[in-house]
């Protein structure tokens, strides 16, 4: 087990190294002058020269890379000129909003997909299965930002069922975790909890639909594979009831790829919220990043990209370890 853990952690570190080189290559070593990129289009030569020196762009590439990596890991993520604020504090300030949105989107996508797919496969109805397949295609193909727009037009403007583009709603008085729903619960304020959920509903569902469709397709295919395995016939021949066969044998066997994919989706959603935050005026990292792109204030965007990759690799690693814990074949090999 220790060997397994070490091997996985080692390979994650190698991947982080590769990803950092790639990010460095793409963002810093490109022909365009990164100093101009960072300083923005309105900077004069003096500012650019200063930024060049600040960035250490006069040094050799390997030295620049080392600077880049060390400053990232000590939390020196640069300075946002348009916000007049260090990037690190900007991001930490807005992380909870994005994290809460991603978390609820994940809950919808993951548990929704598992529940619906397992139920449909258990009921073994041809028509339900066809419907689910079509639903998964629609979900995977719909652009989340367009869906968010449609949601607002229908459920806010026409029907008035959900709040409009006003962000997260009123903040709870005591902020512990930064996640409004949890902070309201901690304060015992259930009305506030409801309000927070009400604001989360549309953006998180818009964000969740794509991953939902993907997970439905994945789990459905895996369930079909396992259902046709000989050991399922053996279980029936033992006299095991269908419900037990389905939930205690078939599901655990078919579930592992979905678990892996689920972890990656959670990590992707953190970055993917870029696509719906703006429409709901959600005060998260996504809005920050788009503003950064529009103002050509790239320090924030660069930090966001590296952060996304690290979260992605970290979650990947956690899932790998979890996978080994759940699947005896991986753990012992």
């Amino acid at each position: 087990m220790i060997d397994f853990l070490l091997a996985r952690i080692g390979s994650a570190i190698v991947t982080i190294f590769g990803a950092s080189v790639l990010a460095f290559a793409v963002l810093r070593a490109v022909p365009t002058n990164p100093a101009r990129l960072i300083a923005g289009p309105f900077a004069n030569d003096e500012v650019i020269a200063q930024v060049t020196a600040n960035l250490g762009l006069d040094k050799s590439l390997p030295v620049q890379y080392l600077d880049y990596v060390t400053s990232f890991f000590i939390g020196d993520w640069g300075f946002s000129y348009s916000a007049g604020q260090p990037v690190l504090s900007q991001i930490t300030e807005r992380l909870p909003a994005s994290a809460e949105l991603a978390l609820y989107a994940f809950l919808f996508a993951f548990f929704g997909a598992v529940l619906v797919t397992v139920l449909v496969s258990f009921l073994n109805s041809r028509w339900l299965d066809r419907f689910l397949r079509l639903l998964s295609f629609i979900s995977v193909g719909v652009p989340p930002f367009w869906l968010a727009l449609l949601f607002l037009m229908v459920f806010f403007e026409r029907l008035g069922w959900f709040p409009g583009p006003v962000g997260r709603g009123p903040a709870p008085t005591g902020l512990y975790t930064g996640l409004f729903t949890i902070d309201y619960l901690l304060a015992g304020d259930f009305a506030g909890f409801g309000t927070a959920l009400h604001h989360l509903a549309l953006p998180s569902i818009a964000l969740a639909l794509g991953p939902f469709g993907y997970l439905v397709r994945l789990l459905r295919a895996n369930l079909l594979d396992i259902i046709n395995e000989p050991f399922v016939t053996v279980l029936h021949a033992k006299g095991v009831a269908p419900i037990s066969t389905h939930f205690r044998h078939i599901l655990p066997n078919a579930f592992l790829p979905t678990l892996t994919a689920g972890g990656l989706i959670l990590a992707q959603l953190l970055g993917g919220s870029v696509l719906v935050e703006r429409i709901f005026v959600w005060p998260g990292i996504g809005t920050l990043v788009i503003d950064g792109i529009l103002r050509q204030d790239y320090a924030v965007v660069q930090a966001f990209i590296m952060l996304s990759a690290i979260i992605y690799i970290g979650v990947n690693l956690l899932v790998d370890i979890l996978y080994g814990y759940v699947d005896p074949r991986v753990r012992r090999s």
């Binding site: 395995e229 000989p230 050991f231 016939t233 053996v234 279980l235 029936h236 021949a237 033992k238 006299g239 095991v240 044998h249 655990p252 066997n253 759940v326 699947d327 005896p328 074949r329």
Partner: peptide
């Protein structure tokens, strides 16, 4: 109640006849 109790069955493929997990 009959399956596995009064009539039991073994199959051709021992490699795939057991639940791997």
């Amino acid at each position: 109640k009959v399956r596995g109790n009064d009539i039991a069955m073994i199959f051709q493929e021992p490699m795939t006849s057991l639940d791997p997990v």
